[in-house]
């Protein structure tokens, strides 16, 4: 059973037609019917391509949050061999909203950090919907520092609505934990690359995305505050989220134009959730290419390049 987003209605109708005819064909139909199905399927594909070539920012937000979109663990399964998750911040606890560990990416030993949102009720609760606590960021710092000692490039997989706003998080210094994690990113003497695969939600994303290279999937979003939060802060009306999504400029395409990110990774037609394997392979290729372009730089050069890149943002528009 396929699922469709609200704005995919036109495609859903064509798909339904093809399904209907396929069912008839299965119970015995003419070869002409098979041709007809082929034509309808081609039409569905073309309609999908057209639709996804001109998604509005709000539609992109819906795609970025699609439950079937590949998550952190899918990228790990697809791209990292011998992944060894490492737990805990050595101070308070283990926060599964951020998963961190070491493994081998296309033959190279790496450290990987990222938010996991979970994919069913049980795992969503366990991962707190990808909204990290201070101990998650402190674990990230621990893994980054270890990566620095053992000369492992760091890959960040970013997918969060934001850091968790709760009593415990505040008591344990959410703000400080995020600030330290951002600082750790900027201090690394090894290459680091961030890929925003779904939602890059505010400080909770920056904390692991202050990297040499920041890439975004074609239909992902990166925000200072979610469209819903922006709408309630600026318009005092959370129903203005669609308008906020447009006004706040949150798409990969806008952010590349602004020089805030370094590249966009193409998604399969109809979004990453329609072909997980292809999306994961594209991310792998982009990360490999980015790592190659950073190889051969000294720790000092990596730090300076990173610092200059961030300082340069917004200086020339």
């Amino acid at each position: 059973m396929r699922s469709y987003l609200d704005f995919e209605k036109s495609v859903a109708e064509i798909d339904a037609k093809a399904d209907e005819l396929s069912a008839i064909l299965a119970t015995g139909g003419s070869p002409a019917l098979a041709d007809e199905i082929g034509r309808i399927e081609a039409r569905a594909k073309a309609a999908l391509k057209d639709l996804y070539a001109s998604l509005t920012p709000w539609q992109k937000a819906m795609v970025a949050r699609h439950p079937m979109r590949p998550h952190f663990k899918d990228y790990i399964t697809g791209l990292v061999e011998d992944f060894s998750p490492l737990a805990g911040d050595r101070a308070f606890g283990e926060d599964e909203a951020i998963v961190a560990g070491i493994g081998r990416f296309r033959g190279v030993s790496v450290a990987v950090i990222g938010q996991e949102k979970g994919s069913d009720t049980e795992s969503r609760i366990r991962h707190n919907f990808g909204m990290a606590m201070p101990e998650g960021y402190r674990k990230a710092v621990r893994i980054m520092e270890m990566a620095d000692r053992f000369n492992l490039p760091v890959i960040s997989i970013v997918d969060t609505a934001g850091a968790y706003p709760g009593i415990g998080a505040e008591e344990r210094g959410q703000a400080e934990a995020i600030a330290r994690s951002t600082e750790a990113c900027l201090g690394l003497g090894v290459p680091n690359i961030a890929v925003i695969i779904g939602e890059g939600g505010s400080g909770g994303a920056v904390a692991i995305a202050s990297t040499n290279t920041v890439l975004m999937l074609e239909h992902s979003i990166y925000t200072v505050a979610s469209p819903e939060a922006s709408a309630s802060i600026l318009w005092h009306d959370s129903s203005k989220a669609q308008e906020a999504a447009t006004t706040m400029k949150i798409t990969a395409q806008d952010l590349l134009k602004f020089g805030i990110i370094d590249g966009i990774i193409q998604e399969p037609v109809g979004g990453a959730h329609r072909d997980n394997a292809a999306a994961i392979a594209s991310v792998g290729d982009a990360v490999e290419k980015s790592l190659q372009s950073l190889s051969g730089l000294t720790p000092g050069e990596l730090r300076d390049k990173r610092a200059e890149k961030f300082l340069g943002i917004g200086r020339k528009l």
Binding site: E183, S202, S210, T223, V224, A225, L234, I250, G314
Partner: peptide, 22 residues
């Protein structure tokens, strides 16, 4: 916190100022 009206340019002040702290 962030100057919302500047969107992601505002968020980027977090790593930018942190570079200066370093």
């Amino acid at each position: 916190g962030a100057r919302m009206q500047e969107g992601m340019f505002s968020l980027m002040q977090m790593p930018r100022t942190t570079v200066a702290v370093r």
